[in-house]
Simulated scan of single mutants.
Amino acid sequence: MPVRPCRGIVRRLNGQTICFTGRVLVDDEWRVRTHCAERARQEGATPKTDFSQKATLVIYGDLASKVVTDDSRTYSSTLVNAEAERRRGRHVCVVDGDGFSKLLRGRPAPCLELRRARTGRVRPVAAATTEAHILGGPLRVRRTGRRSSADLTLDLNRLDEATAVHEATVGALIAHLSRQGIEACTYSSGAPEFDAGWSRGEDIFVAEVKSLTGAREDQQIRLGIGQILDYAHQLRSAHPSTVIHPVLVLEKRPSAARWTALAEGVGLRLTWAPGFSGI
């Protein structure tokens, strides 16, 4: 079987070499190829007018939900060529207008299967994946800042400080995974709202990030353990054939060594910045 480097999900337009089958329905409005190509170029993609062996992504529009036959028309032969490349072992991703709309918004899109009949017809088919139901788009560090005490009745500086530390830990985790060639993701729609997720092979890791600043350490760790074990239980119930690894990420080493033994006892990975040992 051909290798599927996308694992059923197209995560971004950046770096893709793409071609279009025709007009594309983008956010409920039909757009011509030149418009779509310019939008894709702004997101870091390289649009091509025709399919070639350099193509990594095909976006099909006015052929959506129709059977595509192998004839002389360029727009209808594109999917046939993509399917032929897959048969040769080079996976070319295919998304529809809805998938293209998601990619333009920075969200992942499902890669469609291509099925060929004996008559030579090629049919695009949606193929749901477990990862697509759990991991969302790329994880980003949120901006943080101190509130003006003049605008508040309560002093929330300590809360702001804890939030800043939390986001700094998230940023350090993203960088740590990136150095291993792994992309940190947010949660997908309908999945539990974990702080970070990523995949290694077929296994999926979901993490809760906890700062220890401005709060009792034991309270924060207990809260984090409960949250991430709950998220893992929900995901295992929904996807029993998928290996889910819960991870609790702390801003720094906890002062009490007992937390490491407790984490091991409940099947939880405990790690902390800046080294993130074990992940």
Rank of each mutant, 00 (worst) to 15 (best):
R115L: 04
G181H: 07
V125Y: 00
A109R: 00
R118T: 11
V170T: 08
R107D: 09
R146H: 10
E183K: 09
Y187C: 08
G197F: 03
T129Q: 08
H166G: 03
T129M: 06
A175Y: 09
C111M: 05
V170F: 11
L156W: 08
L154E: 14
W198F: 11
T153A: 09
Y187K: 04
A168L: 15
R115A: 03
I134C: 01
S148G: 05
I204K: 11
I174Q: 06
G171E: 06
S101T: 14
A191M: 03
G190P: 02
D160M: 09
G136T: 06
S199C: 11
G136V: 02
L212Q: 02
L177C: 07
R118V: 15
P108N: 03
L154S: 11
D160W: 15
A164L: 05
R118W: 14
L156S: 07
A162K: 04
A127N: 08
A128F: 13
G137N: 04
A191W: 05
V209M: 03
H133R: 14
P110Y: 07
L103N: 05
R123I: 07
A196D: 01
I174F: 07
P138K: 14
D203T: 15
L103D: 05
E217P: 04
V125A: 00
E131R: 14
L156F: 06
